[in-house]
Design a protein around this nucleic acid. Sequence first.
DNA 1: AGCACGCCGACT
DNA 2: GTCGGCGTGCTC
Length: 841
Amino acid sequence: MENLTNTLFSSFEADEVTFFADLILPIPVPRLFTYRVPREMAEVLKIGARVIVPFGKNNGRVFTAVVARLHNSPPTNYQARYITEVLDEYPLVTGYQLELFRWMAEYYMCCVGEVMNIALPSGLKISSQSKVQINPDFDYPELLTEFEDTLLTELKKQQALSYDELVRLAGAGTNIPALIKSLVGKKAIIVFEEVREKYIPKMVRKVRLNRTYEEKEQLLALLNRLEKLPKQQEVVMRYLSHVPVQMNASLNQKGLDKTILNQDDTVSQSSLTTLIKNAVFETFELIQPRFSDNAPPQAEIKLTDAQREASQQIMAQFERQNIVLLHGITGSGKTEVYIDLIQQAVGSGSQVLYLLPEIALTTQIVVRLQRVFGDKMGIYHSKFSDNERVEVWKGVVSGQYQFVVGVRSAVFLPFDNLGLIIVDEEHETSYKQHDPAPRYHARDVAIMLAHWQQAKVLLGSATPSLETYHQAKQGRYGLVELFRRFGDATLPNILLIDTKVEKRQKTMKNEFSSALLTALEANMERREQSILFQNRRGYSPYMQCEDCDWTAECPNCAVSLTYHQRAAELRCHYCGHKEEVPRICPVCGSTKVRTIGFGTEKLEDQLQIIFPKSKVLRMDLDTTRAKNAYQQIIQEFEGGEIDILVGTQMITKGLDFDNVSLVGIFDADRLIHFPDFRATERSFQMLTQVSGRAGRRAGRQGTVLIQTNNPQQTILQKIIENDYKGLFDEEIQERQNFNYPPFSRLIKLTVRHADKAVSQQAADRLAAELTDALGSSRILGPEQPLVERIRNLFLFDILIKIERDKVNVKAVKSYIQDRINDILTDKGLRQVSIVIDVDCL
DNA sequence: AGCACGCCGACT
DNA sequence: GTCGGCGTGCTC
């Protein structure tokens, strides 16, 4: 019957009428799904539009999907289901993006659905896992239908409703997707995905007058009534002075920050409580906007001669090259060069994307850019709520945002007319997505994007990745250098402290060399600030029994537990497991359970003991977890009251502090000797970047002290001399000898299973098959990674090295995929999971 | 991924 | 005798 109607329709309608849509669903299944297009949708439905579809056994689930293809050939071996709802009249996903999705899925060996899922902010994906919440800014109830209004009143009482709860509330038979679409369209509600452990938008508690007092007479009556209650009257008056409801009643809905009304006296607090109890005031919560707009607009930026020259050189090189590397030492003022180029590109009418590593974006740079570009600039940050991300997305489509500053995921925004992409701190590893697929590198994706849209790419760094610098030296990228510090500030003087000598002479105080202590003290006396870098958080990485050598280990992972003193617990930095600190050794009962090694927390602690009067702040994952903690720490440090900032690599990223003249670096050896072929490169980058925090102001030379057991190491010499090129020349030779990137591409396969033997068996077989086809020189492993078990899964890594030229990468990838699929369908091995990481770092 | 179906152990 | 463990297969 179904087939009969199909053929009937086909013969009745013109050829271009579409009945079927191939959709991208946000699930990790490597294929598109074909749905039927209801007749009334046939004309409106466009490629790139979002639709809502039922999915799974007895339509149990609902997804937002994206139309990838429209056609009229019915599937032969199943009945296609109908699309429930069309969400977009015009494509929300551009053709460029669909192309990008497909390319990424192929290149990074994942499913298009996974790419789409990461690309779209969850606010654009209604699904059965969605939740809805009332939009606190909504104040146009007159737009609502009666039914919607009752529903919204109900919703107001709840914090948020899940999709299923909404179904129950609205009653069976309601077209829930259509309802949500309508309410979202009226900006009455907000859709979001279940927030995992992610960002929770900062809420401000606000108060406003009960609606009845928006009328003048009612308000006057209220004030009269309160005549005998002066305290309460005062509160109301205070509210009215901030929110002149009597002048403009509509102001009331926006309310007033509760803290402003409380000020600091407890009297008004209790009066306010009473007023709220008596329904004079009502409280509500609002999402706090993250960047307030009070920066003075359009501060003229002035380029130094060196900056102007760099900018001109870049423009000149863009004539012949699509990609240019700006190699500028720390503090050379690359940002001004970027601003200049952005202004030119925006002025010529094209779009600009400015990528920054996650943490750097939170800082002063955004404020600086905002001063120049004002509200023409969109900000795309993972710490922003979904609605804000959706706003930016739509702003790009509408043309409101011609220029966006953003993190990694900003490459997914719907640009269609890019002229310039800047990738700042190009070497930063946080551009590579690690955990959920697609495991993409935003820099490389940006280069593809630019290629498709004929845009130029500017890669900027003080310590370029070997890959990029190699390309520049080969002439495939342009190269512009900026080797003078802004305002002619000098580069810091870097000194190596031999901790071996100090230990022998017993001049170390805990982890601190006497040289460092003297420098810190002198710095404090001069009222200048210091930064201490230790790339390890927590108090100490081991807890061990002195008598029997027992160490605290994670029950789920093959690592020792880190002792956190402030939280008074042991934590696993891999799976998050926490446990109590043992008083006695659980094996032998000894009380001599000691901590070994040190992290930022311990340094902070010891500083307080050594310099009791000093003000010390710590900045690491643990102190910046809270919403605005990062900015708070920076602000406090900038305020100048703080003497010493102790931190992990977090402090290396793009922070500008005028008053910092000393940087101390601990445990450099651990960094340098990390068992990874990129360790040297990483160490150079990290240590150079931290060093760059010292003495960024003209007229004073900063000092950097690096504590090491072996000052003779060549890498340290290179860092002292700021000899990037020397390091590059040595390192690139090594890479060539062992056929590592940039001479090859790497694909890492990680096999995981709860049973070590099964995991190993699968890995062995996979490696053997790959070796057979590709030769043993291209396959490394399988070997157990440094941490061989995480979350109770045993890991085995296989590394595949593919030469840049003379090998068909596509063919290799498809071969790898086939072998993996074989294993995954093998009776004995099918429950192993295999993670593919293309261009792994 | 998630969800249903299905085949084996410890419980009322 | 059943409840529920998770291994297996499928999703338009």
